[in-house]
Design a protein around this nucleic acid. Structure first.
Lengths: 180, 180
DNA sequence: TGTACATCAGTGAACGCGCGTTCACTGATGTAC
DNA sequence: TGTACATCAGTGAACGCGCGTTCACTGATGTAC
């Protein structure tokens, strides 16, 4: 892909992430996006085929950023409990810093064009941590991985509502690893 | 509340649940709803203040039905593992039977007027099963309950995509109860 | 170096469409006397 | 039993609005010769 990373394209996506903090993703209009990016409405269609195409790009950028943050924190560790704990913490910390988290985690999944994209992203995460759950001796490592991803996303959303890291919730998440 | 249960109101909600199987909840239009229910467009506003009011009622009906199915299956049991397993199975089986599951579980959360309603429903479920997790000796029973609710909803969605009950996934869900 | 042409991001007015909502009206049913 | 009135679910044409999308155009930059 290599993201030609055109500055205007970047400005449009950046404006979208900022707006997604305040308005529902389904109500994120092209008018608001171009106003946020400071460009004309027609410019939007220079860089994106249509609104759905834009939303997919928005989600992909969000997901890629989070994924990089996780890898930076857990890449060099061998599969196992420590790597998984570090990955989960990196994910949650990145979600607390990132913009548009609620939009991407709670809203994107239900939108016409992006549902498939979100499912694929969750799938990718699940496969990323499957070796860890296998190393922990899980009888159903991939299934356990899917559930762990779902739980971690839920923690991210609850932390977002609270506006801060929720220690007992993270502890309950880590408790899961004793069981698999 | 006691739901005066007016037949036309019921027909409108029923049509919505049927339509939610096929179209995104955000794209569920008043036109389609009234067409599905076989009434005039104005009738919609006899029974609901506006579209958001209707969607809240739709979600509430879905949630109430599922909750009744769970209670019927697990009500007389004492808090503990068995009650929780039965409740989870009842929830998942009810989701496989119910209409509009994906809309309610994956889409409603992100919609402008209903997000709060969905959060409240999840909260209610979590408090319902908190005694079970306490009985199992969890160090963070309410937090563990929230995560269990999130996992179970995820299983429901994956089963819905698959179109059938997924045994290893349900097994991985139950494995969680060994850890808390 | 200068001229002619091609490319392409950016512009913004204009468009059509479908949406949620309104409202004056109908007709059946219930109530008063 | 009969008449007058009130109530209220239901009707559907009409409305305005905001949306996503288009398109003819501009102007700067790159390329050929």
């Amino acid at each position: 892909m290599a993201h030609s990373e055109h500055p205007t394209r970047h400005a449009l996506l950046d404006a979208g992430l900022g707006l997604a903090e305040r308005v529902a993703l389904s109500a994120l209009s092209v008018d608001e996006i171009v106003r946020g990016a400071g460009v004309a409405k027609g410019t939007f269609y220079v860089h994106f085929k249509d609104r759905a195409d834009y939303l997919v790009a928005l989600h992909r950028q969000f997901h890629d950023e989070i994924r990089l943050a996780i890898q930076a924190e857990s890449d060099e560790l061998p599969p196992g409990r420590e790597r998984l704990e570090r990955a989960a913490a990196a994910y949650l910390d990145a979600c607390l810093r990132a913009r548009g988290v609620k939009a991407m985690l709670a809203q994107a999944r239900g939108l016409p064009g992006i549902g498939h994209e979100v499912a694929a992203a969750n799938d990718r995460f699940a496969h990323d941590i499957e070796p860890d759950l296998r190393a922990l001796g899980s009888a159903h490592p991939l299934e356990a991985a899917r559930l762990f991803v779902a739980m971690t996303a839920e923690v991210a959303l609850l932390e977002l509502d609270a506006g801060e890291s929720l220690t007992p919730l993270r502890a309950a998440l880590i408790d899961y690893l004793a069981a698999v």
